[in-house]
Each structure stands twice: as structure tokens, then as C-alpha cells.
Computed example of a mutant assay.
Amino acid sequence: MMDELEGCSTEKSWLTNGCINSNRVTFRECNEENPEHRWTFDFQNKRIHSQARRADLCLTRLSENLSMAACQPANLQQLWFFNQQDHLYSRVDLLDSLAFVKLLQGNTSAPSPVTFSFIESETGDDQCYLSPFTGRVECPGFEVDEESLKQQEVKLWHWSGHWPWQPKPMKLTEDLKLGDFRNNHCLAVTHCHMDSVGQSDCFGGAKIKVSACKSVSHQVWRYDLISKRLFNKQAGEQFCLSWLSGHLTLEHCLAGSAGSQRWYFSLGKGSQYGERGQLRWFSNSWEHYDYVKTLDFDPVVKVEILKKDSQGEGCGYDPIDGTWKGLCANQAI
């Protein structure tokens, strides 16, 4: 695929500067030395950029063509995914993953899927690359070493504030860990699902597992006290902890109340004080512990704030009652 300087679209009012921000994308004979034929995939934001265009331009799925347009937060037309077969599809084409390909191939009745061909690696190793499907360092035919695995770690949270499930203002806690800490068991997200029926994108349907507590991003969570949603650092703001059809997973965050994705931590007042901090599902008071039964053990899932103040106490918004605690500066969103 390549983008060219003609075929501009005025379909969206936010397209500016004429052709510069709205270059039509077409098929041409491949030439990987041509910058017009070279692309990069932003795994965290699920966006595609052309190496021949400015970094603030994204591949955009319009109704009649594909164009390079100004990147817009939460624009579904600019979200792209790769499935297990390395096929590319647009977020807006969920019911027909080859719909955008038909536009490129002249609305043919039998379109061929668009796949990727790996050219260069940001890992510096020609045998290894960051998979656009799993987000992991893949080394076909080679054993992945510990150093390569560390490159999967997400160092910083990113909050666009433009998703419909993120209210304004948000009231985010600091980093949290969830689990049975007496036995050093923490809830973690598998790096990427491989077998969820009907799901093709990374972390959509990712299973929740139990593993020994470590300082790794797939065990780090944040809780929004307003929307009552739990986000995982490895997966990012697009995915929420969900209890659906008897399974504890990560799913695409749903707009609205979405009871299956709303959680709270028990206050545990009075005689039930021992339950304080236990993770509970919002929708059904009789199913507080059903999600626990799907895990590898029978833990009491509690919460702990990872950020500590000068006294060694948890610091930030308390996920249980929403009050500020600790001696650190109030820097929460």
C-alpha cells in the first residue's frame, strides 16, 4: 500500500490543509526502498503511520477510500488491528473485515486480505520484531531471551481523555496491585489472547491469570472512582476488566453503565471489617465471589496502592472510599 498526493477527500470537516492531510491510499507494485511503501504500526494506540508523511497523520478508513488524515483521539476510523493470521482490518469493519480491501481492489467479489511484511526492527535485531498482533517481541525460529521480553514492558500510562467511558473529570487512583498478598498471588493480564472466539485484536478477550507478584506492567492496575472501571497498564485505556458469561477477562471498554465492567472495593464496616478492600462486581450482590472461582486458586482478592509516601504508606486516592491518603502531592487526574 502507498499514499499519493492526489485523490483528496473532504468527507470530514476536521481534514485540513487540503491534500497534505488527506492523501488517498492505493495499491502499487511493492518497493520497500520507497518511503511511500513503508509503514509503522503504533501498537499502543493501534494507529498506522506512513514513513513518507508527518508523524501526526494516520491511516484513516473513510466511507469511499483510505486516506492519510490528521490523527484524532478516539477516532474509530483510525484504529487498526492484526489478527492471528497477520491480516489487517479496520475497527469500523468488524462485520466485514475485508470491506476496506474491497475499496482498494476495486470492490472485487473475492478480495485478498492485507498482511504485513517485516522490513526493519526497532529491537535492533533483524531476527526479532515487535508483533503487531501480540505486542510482544517475536523471534521466529529463535528462543526469546529475557532482555527481549523486558521490551514488552509499558513504562508510562497514557490517558487521552476522549473515550466515551472516561468521564470528565476522571478520578484515577495511583498504580494498584490486586490479589491475595498473603500468598504473594497477584492478578495479571495474559500478554495477548490467542483463542477467544470472535475476537481478533490483542487484549480484546485477554484472560486474567494469577501469578507471583512482581513489578511488571501486566500486574499493574488503575481504578477510576467515577466510572468504576479497572484498567491494566499493559493493555491501556481501551480495555476494561470485565466479568462476562462466567469469565474474568479484559474486553473493549463499553460506553454507558456497562455493569459487567463496573467494580468496587468493599468498605467492610462493622462486623465485616475483615472484608474491607475486597474486589467486588457491581452488577449482582449475590455474585461477589463468582469471578474468583474462575481463577487458578480461591483467593480473597484485595487491593494495595503501589505508590508510597515518605512514611512508607500507600499514597493517592483510596480506591475503597475515594478519599486522598498519604503525604505525597495530589497529582491525580
Results as ranks from 00 to 15, higher is better:
D298H: 04
F231N: 06
A212H: 10
L230V: 09
L250Q: 02
P169H: 11
F142R: 15
I119E: 09
W159P: 03
S22D: 15
V303D: 02
H218G: 00
V25T: 15
G259V: 12
P35D: 05
E122K: 11
I226Y: 08
W39D: 09
A235Q: 11
G135C: 11
V144N: 15
T323P: 01
W159L: 13
D296K: 05
L62C: 12
G161K: 13
K168V: 15
D42S: 12
Q199V: 03
R54S: 09
T173P: 13
A212Y: 07
C8F: 09
E251R: 14
W157E: 04
F231H: 06
D318F: 09
M170D: 06
V303F: 03
L254Q: 13
Q78E: 09
Y89N: 11
D93E: 07
K302Y: 03
H49N: 11
I226A: 14
Q199G: 01
I226N: 15
I333A: 04
T134F: 11
S283K: 08
G161I: 15
S131W: 03
L95E: 11
I320D: 07
F100Q: 02
S283I: 10
W281D: 01
T123M: 01
L103V: 05
D290N: 02
E122V: 09
D298S: 04
V216Q: 07
L178A: 10
V300H: 02
R38N: 12
Q51Y: 14
L104Y: 01
K302N: 07
Q311T: 14
C30Y: 05
G322M: 13
K302M: 06
F231K: 03
R280I: 04
P111I: 04
S160M: 08
K171M: 10
E313W: 13
A188I: 06
K209M: 06
R53F: 07
I320R: 08
E4C: 08
Y273R: 01
K155G: 05
A332M: 14
D3E: 15
Q84F: 09
N107I: 00
K46G: 02
S50H: 03
L254E: 13
W263T: 05
S215C: 09
T323S: 08
V292T: 10
N232K: 05
S217W: 03
A99Y: 02
N23C: 14
E4V: 13
T16E: 13
Q44A: 13
R24N: 08
W159F: 14
P164G: 05
G179W: 03
N45E: 15
G106Y: 04
D93H: 00
H185F: 12
